[in-house]
Simulated assay, not measured.
Amino acid sequence: MSCGVDEYKRIKAIDDLFKLGYKYTVKELSVYLKLKNLHDPANAFSCGVSEKVLYKVLTAMKNELHVPLTKNLQNQYYYEI
Rank of each mutant, 00 (worst) to 15 (best):
H66F: 13
Q76A: 07
D40F: 02
Y22S: 05
R10S: 03
D6K: 09
K56H: 11
E64P: 01
L17C: 06
V67F: 03
V53W: 07
F18I: 15
M1N: 07
Y8Q: 15
F45E: 07
S50Y: 06
E80S: 10
I11W: 03
A60P: 02
K36P: 00
E64F: 08
F45R: 08
G48E: 01
L38T: 08
N63L: 13
A42E: 05
F45N: 09
L69T: 14
L69G: 05
F45G: 04
A13E: 01
C3E: 13
T25A: 01
L65A: 11
S50I: 14
K23T: 14
S50C: 09
G4R: 07
E28Q: 15
V5A: 11
V5P: 00
R10G: 01
E51R: 08
L69K: 06
L29C: 03
Y24D: 02
M61I: 12
V26A: 04
I11E: 02
I11P: 00
V26T: 12
S46E: 05
M61H: 05
K23D: 03
N43C: 01
E64S: 11
N63C: 09
E7L: 15
L17T: 14
K9A: 13
M1F: 09
G21Y: 13
P68K: 09
G21E: 08
P68D: 07
Y55H: 13
S30A: 08
L38W: 04
S46I: 08
A60M: 10
A13K: 04
L29W: 03
E80Y: 14
A42S: 04
T59R: 12
N43P: 00
K52C: 06
Q76H: 11
I81K: 10
V31S: 00
I81Q: 07
F45V: 04
I11H: 03
K71G: 04
D6V: 14
K12P: 00
H39Y: 07
K56A: 10
R10C: 04
Y77M: 06
K19P: 00
K52E: 11
L29M: 12
Q74K: 14
L35K: 15
L73R: 14
L20F: 08
K19L: 11
L54I: 13
K52S: 11
L33Y: 03
A13Y: 03
Y78Q: 07
T59Y: 10
E64H: 10
K19V: 13
G48A: 05
G4P: 00
C3K: 14
Y55P: 01
A13H: 02
K9L: 14
Y79K: 02
H66L: 13
M61W: 06
V67Y: 03
V57I: 15
Y55N: 12
R10F: 02
D15G: 07
R10A: 01
M1Y: 10
S46L: 03
N72A: 11
N75A: 11
